[in-house]
């Protein structure tokens, strides 16, 4: 117990962990403290809470049509998550359950596509949306993100643990394939769905570049885009920006804490 070498090792571990914790928590701390300070105080590097929180919140709420912006963000993130999970889980299920000669080649092709950076796709994608006449619509934001290759991959990996006996039993009971998917697969895989929800919701909620390009008017802006415009200008109000940053972070935090237990399960493997 009182082995000095082990003790030093322990102290080292804690020191390292404390350092890592500090590095991860400090930006968050700075954001919260900044939200309660005036812009001038933030520039001077004041690291203690101030009294301007309410002022900053009022200014933030009045800087754009908050109801509309929040509605846009929640609609796009929520609907985007539901559709992505649906499409990706069906694809993952299909890839694992059905054998075909080309299965691995198609899947490999998909994975290869992961390496194409979005910047290279942006302009052709925009031209496509322009031809479809859906620029500045919710569809234009949602469509390119629904078939997320990463989430398909994630579901396929998770499906490997799905017992095929369950599917066989369901078949014997007379269920059709879509019924098996809906009534057997989905409930069994709920941890996987929960983990994927966090990942997809966060990605959609924080999505910036594509909505920026394809959405044109103030009425269509999401919270991420609106908060970015707060930083526009030669004399930005940093206190208000910090309030915006908190507002933009909060929903993903809430989703994460709500689904945290399932997230860990989902990461460890859905089926025990």
């Amino acid at each position: 117990m009182s082995n000095p070498i082990a003790l030093i090792g322990r102290a080292g571990t804690y020191l390292l962990l404390s350092l890592a914790a500090f590095v991860s928590i400090f930006p968050f701390f700075w954001m919260v403290v900044g939200a309660s300070n005036t812009s001038a105080d933030i520039i001077r590097g004041k690291g203690t809470p101030g009294g301007a929180l309410w002022d900053n919140i009022v200014k933030f709420v009045n800087s754009f049509d908050m109801v509309r912006v929040l509605f846009n963000s929640f609609l796009l993130a929520g609907l985007g998550t539901v559709l992505t999970l649906l499409v990706a889980s069906m694809a993952g299920y299909g890839f694992e359950m059905f054998r075909s000669r080309f299965r691995e080649k198609v899947f490999g092709g998909l994975l290869l596509m992961l390496s194409i950076p979005f910047a290279a796709l942006m302009i052709p994608l925009f031209m496509l949306m322009a031809q479809l006449k859906i620029i500045n619509t919710y569809q234009a934001v949602l469509l390119p993100s629904i078939a997320s290759i990463f989430i398909i991959f994630y579901f396929r990996q998770a499906t490997k643990a799905f017992p095929s006996e369950l599917r066989d039993a369901a078949k014997i009971d007379g269920l059709k394939e879509w019924q098996i998917f809906l009534y057997v697969y989905m409930p069994v895989m709920r941890s996987t769905y929960a983990a994927a929800t966090i990942i997809v919701f966060m990605a959609n909620w924080n999505s910036y570049l594509w909505p920026l390009i394809v959405l044109q008017t103030n009425e269509m802006k999401t919270l991420t885009l609106a908060v970015a415009t707060l930083a526009a200008g030669y004399t930005p109000d940093f206190g208000v920006i910090m309030v915006g940053a908190i507002a933009a972070t909060l929903p993903t935090l809430i989703i994460f804490f709500l689904l945290q237990r399932r997230f860990v399960e989902g990461m460890l493997g859905a089926v025990k």
Partner: peptide, 9 residues
Amino acid sequence: GVSLFSVAA
């Protein structure tokens, strides 16, 4: 929802 709120320019 998505069909209702699609806003045209």
